[in-house]
């Protein structure tokens, strides 16, 4: 494994030599293949099919939903009406859920990114008493199934009086062992110790060195960790499911599932068009964030995935 690490380190130089090599080596700069492009398009169809279905069906009225073929449009185009109905249903509870989700993402994912960055950096650049044990325990935690902890966490939080409050969602979201690991790997690769030594000789304190120098070198890694933390908190289902019983604190995922459940059982009051339109409104922001940030995570993820 050590030999592999060494070859990975000079990232920038290798990228340069690769682009030069692409021009002459047919293995690195082959001709484009239309056949392969078409065969690989199967993946595109698979990935986009449900999203296309969602887009099309968000334009249908409930009677159209039940009577027309899934991948064709209905007799009327009701997207605007559906959105208005989704936002207005039950005194605008959807907007309340959206606000809750934003709160959980900002506090939870933001805090998780900060803690993972500080922790991963500290582990990578400092030798301190207890470091070995710290690292071993956190890495071990990556393999612990998160849901195995959910029930005891719930019991613990209910004794502390934290269930049914935003803290029950935010506090557990703050810890991302995998994020800490990614930052550790990224720091080892891209923050030279000499730079830190120079700052120390200039008399800068440790935290100041971190916030003025290291944090810039770590940006791609931090963005990657932030992206995964945002997706994880935006999409969180299990944790709020057990922690919250008051719809006022639901995030979008739990709220949508509750709407969907209305269709079942005695006295069912199906609102399929709202569930579908609500689903669409739920994925639009996260997909937008995802596309916006995609040029950053590329470089950040590389570091973690090759160093196991």
């Amino acid at each position: 494994m050590t030999t592999k690490h060494r070859t990975i380190n000079p990232r920038a130089r290798r990228a340069g030599s690769r682009s030069r090599a692409r021009r002459r080596n047919p293995l690195l700069a082959p001709r484009k293949s239309l056949a392969l492009t078409i065969v690989t398009a199967t993946f595109l169809v698979y990935a986009l099919l449900p999203i296309a279905w969602l887009l099309i069906n968000a334009t249908k009225t409930q009677p159209d939903l039940l009577s027309t073929f899934g991948l064709s449009f209905g007799s009327s185009f009701a997207l605007g009406d559906n959105i208005a109905a989704t936002l207005a249903y039950d005194d605008g509870i959807f907007l309340r859920w959206l606000g809750n989700t934003l709160l959980y993402v900002l506090a939870g994912a933001g805090g998780a990114t900060l803690l993972a960055t500080l922790g991963g950096y500290g582990l990578a650049k400092y030798r301190f008493p207890g470091r070995g044990a710290y690292f071993a325990v956190v890495l071990g935690a990556i393999a612990v199934p998160g849901t195995a902890l959910a029930v005891p966490t719930f019991l613990l939080f209910s004794q502390l009086g934290l269930t049914n409050t935003p803290w029950a969602i935010i506090i557990p979201s703050l810890v991302s062992p995998f994020g800490l690991y990614l930052i550790w790997a990224y720091t080892v690769e891209s923050v030279p110790t000499e730079v830190l030594e120079a700052a120390r000789l200039d008399g800068a304190g440790e935290l100041r060195t971190f916030f003025s120098i290291s944090i810039r070198l770590l940006t791609p890694g931090i963005v990657t960790v932030a992206l995964f933390a945002i997706v994880a908190t935006w999409n969180n289902y299990f944790l709020p499911l057990i922690m919250l019983s008051d719809p006022q604190w639901y995030p979008l995922t739990i709220g949508l599932n509750q709407w969907n459940a209305q269709a079942q059982g005695v006295g069912a009051e199906p609102i399929f068009n709202l569930v579908i339109t609500g689903s669409l409104l739920t994925i639009v922001p996260i997909v937008a964030i995802f596309l916006f940030m995609q040029r950053f995570w590329q470089s950040g993820l590389g570091a973690g995935s090759v160093k196991q």
Binding site: T37, I51, N257, I286, I289
Partner: peptide
């Protein structure tokens, strides 16, 4: 393989479902 047309588009679209919440 660098043999696809529109490689970047493929990469993003295939990754996209990961951003969709499990519930949705």
């Amino acid at each position: 393989s660098a043999r696809l047309y529109a490689t970047g588009f493929y990469r993003i679209v295939i990754f996209l479902p990961y951003a969709v919440p499990a519930v949705v």
